[in-house]
Amino acid sequence: MNPRNRVEQMPVDVFGNDDGFVLVADLPGVRVEDLTVELDKGLLTVAGLRRLGLDGENAETPTFEYRRRFQVPDEIDGERVAARLEHGVLTVTLPKAEAHKPRRIPIS
């Protein structure tokens, strides 16, 4: 099996209050440049390529993809969704609003 075709899901927490939602995902081994967070038509996709060969010395170490999708409520303001990746943990904040416009979310 080609490890590049392997997909795994990551454990996720989702919290909410009147202002919106916070999604927290464990993504160890995923760097900012290998992570995509996308919101399109109410579907939030989090996908990250996990690299184990962090020093580049173990080329045979499996690489695989974390991928998971979430249905988000229409009331989320796509323009104000923000994502942060720190120590292998992704935090996505999804504020509530009326806007439904799909957009790619920049990762800081």
Partner: peptide, 8 residues
């Protein structure tokens, strides 16, 4: 916040 999902 309310908890909607808690796996971590």
């Amino acid at each position: 916040h309310r908890v909607h999902m808690q796996e971590r």
